[in-house]
Design a protein around this nucleic acid. Structure first.
Lengths: 138, 138
DNA sequence: CCAGTTTTTGACAATGGTTGTCAGTTTACC
DNA sequence: GGTAAACTGACAACCATTGTCAAAAACTGG
């Protein structure tokens, strides 16, 4: 979680990866591997489930998508606009996502960690709520 | 995540629940249901796995233990000292845990959420690092 | 203490997300 | 074109967690 600079292990361009990438590009909210897979199916672009998992995992490892662990224990993925570390404000009803930068939080977490002698520090922070649209309809 | 005041649904005192509670009391780090179960086994206090899961879930629902979603997708539980909402600084090597209160973060998250019109807000924040002891040994 | 009622337990099946396997396919490169 | 290495996909295997349901334990009022 510190030296994250591997030259992005060599990879080949394939129809399947392009398809996954395309769906991610079009989707603004976090989606699970399973959801992504069924979207691909419904489009006719048949891609194996295992391949979807592998592709998402590779993207996540390279930091090209953000990963979120849902309460139910499944992983959700999203291709984010900004490159730097940031957080998400997610609607627990419709999944609408707002990207948040929190320099203050970054500073706070690292100072707290240092205070206790911890090194090589990373953190996870996600905010869940109900977005205006969903709150309105009830 | 807002009105969390149910009078703790009536429950019966059983040997099994006492055993789970005891292990939680003695353990300062987060442990998974499976780990807890095998600790019980190794002590001779045989408790069914399903029971361990049910008990932990009940405790978590009542807010009497904190739950952490590990990267591997399993849930880890810990009985915490303080009652109010707080966060954890966890050693990714030995699991040593420090409880952290972060009023500033609480304020920040709710103001950010409000700013975007989100209501009924909750958040998760955990800090991972390597504790002094583990860092020393390498 | 006793019988009745309700909760709890536990062994096991079932679920569901995710990963491993491995032969067949595709890509990159010469 | 031909070859080696990477990739794919169908399916089995895993593993944490939850559901099932009859038997066992805990409470409760006699």
């Amino acid at each position: 979680m510190s030296a994250r600079e591997q030259p992005v292990k060599e990879q080949r361009r394939t129809r399947q990866r392009a398809a996954v990438d395309e769906v991610l590009d079009e989707t603004d909210d976090f989606i699970s591997a399973q959801e992504l897979h069924s979207i691909l199916r419904s489009r006719g672009a048949s891609v194996g489930l295992a391949t979807v998992y592998r592709t998402l995992q590779a993207l996540a490892d390279d930091g090209r998508v953000d990963v979120l662990r849902t309460g139910g224990g499944e992983a959700a993925y999203r291709k984010c606009a900004r490159d730097e570390h940031h957080h998400h404000l997610v609607c627990r009803s419709c999944g609408a996502t707002v990207e948040i930068a929190g320099p203050a939080v970054e500073r706070w977490t690292s100072s707290v960690a240092k205070e206790h002698g911890y090194v090589d520090v990373a953190h996870t922070l996600e905010i869940f709520g109900t977005c205006p649209k969903c709150a309105g309809q009830s």
